[in-house]
Simulated assay, not measured.
Amino acid sequence: MMNSWLRQALGEYVSFKDEEWEFFMHRCKCVKLKPKDIFFRSGEIANKVGFLRKGILRACQENEKGEIVTCYFYYLPHNNVVSLQTSFALKIPSEHSVEAITDCEILYLERNHFNNCLHKYPVFETMVRKIAEKHYLDSSKRINDFQTKDAKEIYNDFVKECGDLASEVPQYMIASYLGMSQFTLSKIKKITFQL
């Protein structure tokens, strides 16, 4: 069944009746991205919601020093909903860009089609609420980790939770995401490898 991968992935949040799913799928579009292609651009309103079929993306923004900081990774199977929630919900320009790190394939809905789904079938409201809850809990854990753990613990947690990213994503992006310099990350990896 075409796009059964997405129905299965979203099944983590809700179950769809066939008519709900067909309504949803008829409004989806597909985009393929190459590394460095942009899915969301900083300074623009995020007017779509994506669902990652393959690949890895990152949300990033420029800090006051002019450095690009990696804030979030989208990858399978953990973070497959590609959105910038604040920008989408409040209809304000995003501070973040979302760019492909590897070849990516994303099914997405533009805002008007997404809203049609929400208005027609309550199951989509439930799905959105549960996805938002997951993002909130993930963000809360990340903030708590930064406040209570040292760099080595943060890196070890990252490897446990998403070790597959460590081999596929450039080290400078991982260091930035973990809030440390590349030097510190290299040092931690060297110590960890020696143990």
Rank of each mutant, 00 (worst) to 15 (best):
M1D: 09
R7E: 12
R7G: 05
Q8F: 13
E12P: 03
V14Y: 02
F24M: 14
F24C: 15
F24R: 04
F24Q: 06
R27V: 00
K29V: 03
C30K: 12
K32M: 12
P35F: 10
P35R: 01
K36A: 11
D37A: 12
I38E: 09
F39M: 04
R41N: 09
E44F: 04
E44W: 01
N47H: 09
R53S: 08
R53F: 07
K54G: 03
K54R: 13
G55L: 05
R58P: 00
A59I: 06
Q61N: 13
E64L: 13
K65E: 10
G66M: 02
C71S: 14
Y72A: 06
Y72C: 10
Y74C: 10
N80K: 13
V81H: 01
V82P: 01
S87F: 15
F88I: 01
I92Y: 02
P93E: 08
E99N: 05
I101D: 05
D103S: 12
C104G: 04
L107R: 05
L109K: 04
E110H: 03
R111V: 01
R111S: 02
H113L: 05
H113Q: 10
F114Q: 01
N116C: 09
K120Y: 01
K120G: 00
Y121T: 06
V123D: 06
E125Q: 09
E125Y: 00
A132L: 12
E133T: 12
S139W: 01
Q147A: 15
K149C: 14
A151W: 00
A151G: 01
K152M: 11
K152I: 04
Y155G: 00
Y155T: 07
Y155V: 11
N156S: 08
V159K: 02
K160R: 14
C162A: 08
G163A: 06
S167L: 13
S167M: 13
P170T: 05
P170V: 03
M173R: 05
I174R: 05
I174H: 02
S176C: 10
G179I: 01
M180C: 03
Q182L: 11
T184N: 13
L185W: 00
I188T: 07
I191E: 15
I191W: 04
L195S: 15
